[in-house]
């Protein structure tokens, strides 16, 4: 319940934060702190210096940027859940943000923190993956963009460099496409045992551009490539069969919540349900 000792610096600007990351010993960014502090309290994480970017108000909020929404890296789950623009143009991410943790967690936790943590059991990484979001990062060499598809490298491992900060997340507006996120868990405040996100368009009775992604089905959030391929251009009654391919290419963990085999089963069932729900929206 008491973290090991560390130094603490408040960043006054993104540039200042980058400088602190460069100059301080064993630095670690903290925003809401709801991924990091629990680990520090159990002394499973022992950073040398915490660089607090929680006060960078510029990085907070949702902006309409034409074909996409620009979500500041420090936008909290609660903000995203209640944001009018997000609810209108990308209801999936607004909805999913409301499923992260509990209200207190959502009052502190941020989208940037959630992505940078790279937890495959976490909701927003999956949502960003299924939406083909673009992650904007700033580092000593300036700004770069990283596609969500190339962001999650491995278990708690992302493309974000140690000296970079997520400043923005760009999510395409979903327009008329239907959406769903089914988060299977025993208790409301748990991580997903399995989560299935779907964004599905349809025209003239056939499915167009179906996108499906999983939470907690491998080392990273995963896109369900086989399902997407099976659905693309298929009639609506092909969903059940396509869903059977859901666990192809996944590598789900076995833990106290479920075995890998049961997760595979859940992925198949929930994929069918998620796609159907998306089609009905």
């Amino acid at each position: 319940m008491i973290p090991a000792s560390f130094d603490y610096e408040v960043a006054e600007s993104v540039d200042h934060a980058l400088e602190l990351l460069r100059t301080k010993e064993d630095p670690k960014l903290i925003a809401g702190g709801h991924s990091l502090l629990p680990l520090m309290k159990l002394r499973l994480a022992r950073p040398g210096t915490l660089v607090d970017i929680g006060r960078l108000g510029d990085l907070r909020g949702v902006r309409d940027a034409g074909d996409h929404l620009a979500i500041g890296g420090l936008t909290r789950h609660h903000d995203l859940n209640t944001d009018a623009l997000a609810r209108q143009h990308c209801p999936l991410i607004a909805y999913a943000a409301g499923l992260v943790g509990d209200p207190q967690v959502r009052h502190r936790g941020t989208i940037g923190g959630s992505l940078a943590h790279g937890d495959p059991a976490s909701d927003l990484p999956t949502i960003c993956l299924v939406l083909d979001a673009v992650i904007v990062a700033r580092g000593p060499g300036g700004e770069r963009t990283i596609d969500a598809s190339g962001f999650f490298n491995g278990f708690f491992d992302t493309a974000l460099a140690e000296d970079e900060i997520i400043t923005e997340v760009r999510v395409p507006k979903t327009g008329s496409a239907g959406w769903s996120y089914l988060k299977f868990r025993q208790r409301a405040l748990d991580w997903a045992t399995v989560g299935v996100a779907a964004v599905v368009g349809s025209s003239h009775g056939s499915i167009q551009g179906a996108k499906v992604a999983f939470t907690n089905m491998g080392q990273t959030p995963l896109r369900a490539a086989a399902v997407e391929a099976a659905l693309d251009g298929a009639p609506r009654d092909a969903v059940a069969q396509a869903a059977q391919k859901a666990d192809e290419g996944t590598d789900p963990p076995s833990d106290t919540w479920a075995t890998g085999d049961f997760r595979r089963h859940l992925a198949r069932v929930l994929t069918g349900r998620a796609v159907e729900e998306a089609l009905s929206r």
């Binding site: 299977f184 025993q186 045992t193 919540w257 479920a258 075995t259 049961f262 089963h265």
Partner: peptide, 8 residues
């Protein structure tokens, strides 16, 4: 009776 036990 967790979901997995029920399903099993």
């Amino acid at each position: 009776a967790t979901p997995e036990r029920v399903w099993n």
